[in-house]
């Protein structure tokens, strides 16, 4: 029995030090975290999340936005919208954050090899997809056409703008950006992100789609992808529910028969399609 008690409690975080803080947008920032106590390599899969704890405030799930190929730090991008993220917003280099994870399922980046890849995302939803984009770019020749379709509220809300511009300018990659609201100064597209799907350059019958953003956006994006002929099983979505433990113990993130923290957050759409329909499930 003592051997059991000696097991590490998955609810206890490990201390990480903030190595860098980068302000991305007016309310969005990126933290680079390194282990505070001992050197250890960090591995995660694109789409996974960590539980981050701010001393005296609380703990929340935040997806990982860094490069899975870089093993000495973890990178998180988030918006300052709640107690914990607002506290993080005020933190600086050298301070400690508690980390548990990584948790959850990943974007099927390797399974998508040999297919076209369509990434449909909006707002902060680009953050959990960035690791997948890095991984695809690191092995670009393994994929067919790669399209990123990104929607933001206004031109000022475009996350990772420099990187989007860079991606558009390199390799064989279609990067399309649209915003909901803009003035005449904005030279780009105005309209919902789903509109980009209609004429994107991909073969719907040989396409794997990754969709991440607000649930309403995902519903309409999936509809449009399906209308174009992409199969529901080839569409992957990342869902958000109240994840408190990350390990399937606390029950808060249940969605039908799934624990979003453990069985998700990334699901093939056909596995959760009915749950998009039933309200308040």
């Amino acid at each position: 029995m003592n051997q059991m008690a000696a097991l590490v409690d998955p609810m206890v975080p490990a201390p990480f030090r903030i190595e860098r803080v980068k302000k991305e947008l007016s309310d969005t920032f990126t933290l680079d975290l390194v282990p505070a106590e001992r050197k250890r390599s960090i591995s995660f899969l694109p789409g996974q999340f960590n539980m981050l704890y701010v001393f005296g405030v609380g703990e929340i799930p935040i997806s990982i936005s860094g490069d899975p190929g870089v093993g000495d730090k973890i990178v998180h991008t988030t918006r300052a919208v709640g107690n914990v993220t607002n506290a993080m917003w005020k933190m600086g280099v050298g301070q400690t954050i508690g980390v548990r994870g990584p948790f959850g399922t990943a974007w099927p980046v390797e399974e998508a090899e040999g297919s076209d890849v369509v990434i449909v995302t909006g707002g902060i939803g680009l953050a959990p997809l960035r690791p997948a984009i890095y991984q695809i770019l690191a092995n670009r020749q393994a994929y067919g056409n790669v399209c990123i379709m990104y929607g933001a509220r206004t031109p000022e809300d475009i996350l990772f703008r420099k990187e989007l511009e860079k991606w558009r300018g390199q390799f064989d990659m279609q990067v399309d950006v649209t915003v909901d609201h803009a003035t005449g100064r904005w030279g780009g597209k105005v309209g919902v992100v789903t509109k980009l799907i209609g004429r994107g350059g991909f073969d719907p019958h040989h396409t794997v789609a990754f969709v991440c953003g607000p649930e309403v956006m995902m519903r309409y994006a999936v509809d449009t992808l399906v209308e174009r002929g992409v199969s529901e099983k080839d569409i992957h979505v990342s869902l958000e529910r109240n994840m408190k433990c990350g390990i399937g113990f606390c029950g808060h993130c249940q969605l039908g028969g799934d624990f979003v923290c453990k069985d998700g957050p990334v699901f093939p759409f056909d596995a959760v399609a009915d749950r998009f329909v039933i309200q308040e499930l």
């Binding site: 929340i60 799930p61 935040i62 997806s63 988030t78 918006r79 919208v81 709640g82 914990v84 993220t85 909006g122 707002g123 902060i124 939803g125 953050a127 959990p128 929607g151 933001a152 509220r153 809300d157 909901d180 609201h181 309209g191 919902v192 789903t194 509109k195 953003g213 607000p214 309403v216 956006m217 309409y220 958000e240």
Partner: peptide, 16 residues
Amino acid sequence: AHARLQMIDLYGIGKE
């Protein structure tokens, strides 16, 4: 339909 989606401030409530 697109105008309605634009109207609802889709990205105002996002992932934390």
